[in-house]
Computed example of a mutant assay.
Amino acid sequence: MIPTLRTARLLLEPYVPEDEEGFVALFQDTRVSQWMGDGPASEADDRALFGRIFTKVYARELFDVWAVRRDGVLIGHAEIKPTDVVGGHEIVYALIPTAWGNGLGTELAEKLVAYGFDTLGLPEVHATVAARNHASLALLGRIGFEHVRDIEEDDGTVTQVLTCCRAATQGRAKAVA
Score class of each variant (00 low, 15 high):
residue 1 M to E: 03
residue 3 P to V: 02
residue 4 T to A: 05
residue 7 T to P: 01
residue 10 L to H: 08
residue 17 P to W: 08
residue 17 P to M: 09
residue 17 P to A: 13
residue 17 P to G: 09
residue 17 P to K: 02
residue 18 E to K: 08
residue 24 V to C: 03
residue 25 A to Q: 14
residue 26 L to A: 04
residue 27 F to S: 04
residue 36 M to L: 12
residue 36 M to H: 04
residue 37 G to T: 10
residue 38 D to V: 03
residue 40 P to K: 09
residue 40 P to R: 05
residue 41 A to W: 02
residue 46 D to I: 00
residue 47 R to C: 02
residue 47 R to E: 10
residue 47 R to P: 00
residue 48 A to D: 12
residue 49 L to H: 08
residue 50 F to Q: 00
residue 51 G to A: 09
residue 52 R to T: 11
residue 55 T to R: 11
residue 57 V to W: 02
residue 60 R to S: 07
residue 62 L to T: 09
residue 65 V to Y: 08
residue 66 W to E: 10
residue 66 W to L: 01
residue 66 W to G: 06
residue 67 A to H: 11
residue 69 R to H: 11
residue 72 G to H: 13
residue 73 V to W: 02
residue 73 V to D: 08
residue 74 L to R: 11
residue 75 I to W: 08
residue 75 I to H: 01
residue 76 G to W: 07
residue 77 H to F: 15
residue 80 I to H: 01
residue 81 K to C: 13
residue 85 V to R: 15
residue 85 V to K: 14
residue 88 G to I: 03
residue 89 H to V: 04
residue 90 E to T: 14
residue 93 Y to R: 06
residue 94 A to I: 04
residue 97 P to R: 08
residue 99 A to E: 15
residue 99 A to R: 05
residue 104 L to W: 01
residue 105 G to V: 07
residue 106 T to Y: 00
residue 109 A to M: 10
residue 114 A to T: 13
residue 114 A to M: 10
residue 117 F to E: 09
residue 120 L to T: 13
residue 121 G to N: 09
residue 121 G to F: 07
residue 126 H to F: 15
residue 126 H to L: 05
residue 132 R to E: 14
residue 132 R to S: 12
residue 133 N to Q: 04
residue 135 A to S: 10
residue 136 S to F: 05
residue 137 L to Y: 06
residue 143 I to S: 10
residue 145 F to S: 04
residue 150 D to N: 14
residue 150 D to K: 15
residue 152 E to N: 06
residue 153 E to G: 00
residue 155 D to Y: 06
residue 156 G to C: 14
residue 158 V to M: 12
residue 158 V to Q: 02
residue 161 V to S: 02
residue 164 C to K: 05
residue 165 C to K: 13
residue 165 C to Y: 03
residue 167 A to Q: 06
residue 168 A to I: 00
residue 171 G to V: 05
residue 171 G to F: 07
residue 175 A to L: 09
residue 177 A to Q: 03
